[in-house]
Amino acid sequence: MPARDINEEIIEDLYSEALVLADDARAAFDLRVQDARSHMGDLTRVALSIEGLRTTTRLMHVLAWLLNQRAYLAGELSERQLERCGALPEEREADADNLGRLESETRALIEESERLHARVVRLDRDWRLQRDEATSVASLQGRIAQAFATA
Rank of each mutant, 00 (worst) to 15 (best):
P2E: 10
P2G: 10
A3E: 02
N7S: 06
E8L: 11
E9N: 10
I11M: 02
I11S: 00
L14C: 02
Y15G: 03
S16F: 07
E17Y: 06
A18H: 04
L19R: 11
V20F: 13
V20A: 09
D23E: 14
D24M: 09
A25C: 05
A25Y: 05
A28P: 01
D30W: 15
V33M: 10
D35E: 12
H39N: 07
H39P: 01
M40K: 05
V46H: 06
V46G: 01
L48T: 11
L48A: 06
S49F: 08
L53H: 14
L53V: 15
R54N: 06
T57F: 13
L59S: 03
H61N: 14
V62K: 04
L63P: 01
A64I: 03
W65C: 02
L67R: 15
L67M: 14
L67E: 14
Q69W: 12
A71P: 00
A71E: 07
Y72W: 10
A74L: 05
A74R: 10
E76H: 13
L77P: 00
Q81H: 14
L82T: 04
E83T: 05
L88S: 03
P89I: 08
E91Y: 13
E91H: 15
D95M: 12
A96H: 06
A96Y: 13
D97S: 11
N98K: 03
L99Y: 08
R101E: 11
A108H: 06
L109Y: 03
L109F: 03
I110P: 01
E111L: 13
R115Q: 11
L116W: 05
L116N: 03
H117W: 14
A118T: 08
A118R: 14
R119M: 12
R119P: 01
L123F: 07
D124S: 12
D124G: 01
W127Y: 12
W127L: 08
L129S: 04
R131W: 07
E133I: 08
T135W: 10
T135L: 11
A138E: 11
S139L: 14
S139E: 10
Q141E: 13
G142K: 04
A145H: 05
A149W: 06
T150H: 12
T150A: 12
